[in-house]
Design a protein around this nucleic acid. Structure first.
Lengths: 201, 201
DNA sequence: GTCTATAAGCCGATAGAC
DNA sequence: GTCTATCGGCTTATAGAC
């Protein structure tokens, strides 16, 4: 098993990812998933043992555990660490948009699946907290509350996935993804009052 | 009609608001709402004409239309305008937390109810866009893309409602709500490279 | 591995009694 | 205004045939 991954199994996962992202977990039926995947209704039970377990399988398959672990273990100074974290997370949003939308829904709903998400995503946010804490200790960042600052930085990084909702009032002057990412990097650095002249890049 | 508001009708609305916020629109049944409100199952149809219309009634009842209209019509300079907008919206999150959570869910799901939300909320976001545009024109704000900057400022303001999800990795050093709001105001002003020495407060 | 057929239950909505 | 009883439809899940 792997690579072609039983084919049907992988088709079911891809269909589930797409439909969950579009309609939500509750709003998507096993029947729909199977129709989209061109598979029989009974095969969700056969391959995953139910809709619930399929959700877990979705993360095991598409969440970039290895990338996160590699980033978490890397040793960087706080400034370049936060910069790289902002970049990597924002880029992930364009490589796996459906998974990100699904994540966002489950978090908003505080769903029973939320611990599956936490288990997968928290290592990177703990790394962010540590970078901020270290940066303040080193005197390169300046802020009052670590909690509130972490939420603020996360907002800068993660909120852009709500873009679709605001589309009707956007004017369309931001098509360059990499430029947008660098704008966010700079915005965050200014917000943190980072001494970019100490260690720069 | 008004004030006691037929009592049962209002109890149904309050129950719906709470349960939708906790379990989502799809995840909450009309039966549950009526049980929570101590009312008969048939009364949702009687008072609102169905679950869908009840959602609309929720916004007609609890969304602060008047406050928003008053803010939108007020004439302020860009710097104090953005500052006040950040404050007012963040405060609203503490006065109507359940409605805000529900809003967030519907936006994340891109639900069929999303236009009801847009109709109610967009005036304030259009005001934000105008303040940012005017501020750049006046030379008090400095940024590349209006769209991306609006999304970034919105992220600073709105992302804090995701706080519950991140609770397990917060250290608990941010209990002062008003201090947190001022931190966000300052973060945003620095991010926008605002010339606070021109017009200050 | 894949299928059909069906079980058992919850959903929203309402007709009609009081 | 409030209730009970019920309808038709959809849900997840699975037993058993092939």
């Amino acid at each position: 098993m792997r690579a072609e991954d039983s084919d049907v199994r992988m088709r079911l996962l891809v269909a589930a990812k797409r439909l969950f992202a579009r309609q939500g977990y509750d709003g998507t039926s096993v029947r729909q998933i199977c129709e989209e995947a061109g598979a029989n209704v009974a095969l969700v039970s056969y391959y995953f043992g139910g809709k619930e377990n399929m959700f877990q399988a979705l993360f095991d398959t598409f969440f970039p555990k290895a990338l996160i672990m590699e980033f978490v273990d890397r040793q960087v100074d706080p400034i370049n660490g936060v910069k790289e974290l902002v970049r990597e997370v924002m880029r992930f949003h364009t490589t796996e948009p459906e998974l990100v939308v699904l994540l966002n829904q489950e978090i908003a709903l505080n769903s029973p699946r939320i611990d599956i998400i936490r288990r997968n995503a928290f290592p990177i946010w703990i790394k962010l907290r540590e970078l901020l804490r270290q940066g303040r200790e080193d005197g390169v960042f300046h802020f009052r509350s670590l909690d509130h600052t972490m939420m603020t930085v996360l907002g800068n990084v993660l909120f852009h996935k709500q873009r679709n909702y605001f589309l009707p009032i956007l004017i369309g002057d931001s098509n360059d993804q990499e430029a947008a990412i660098e704008d966010s990097v700079d915005f965050v650095m200014r917000g943190l009052q980072a001494n970019t002249d100490i260690i720069s890049q």
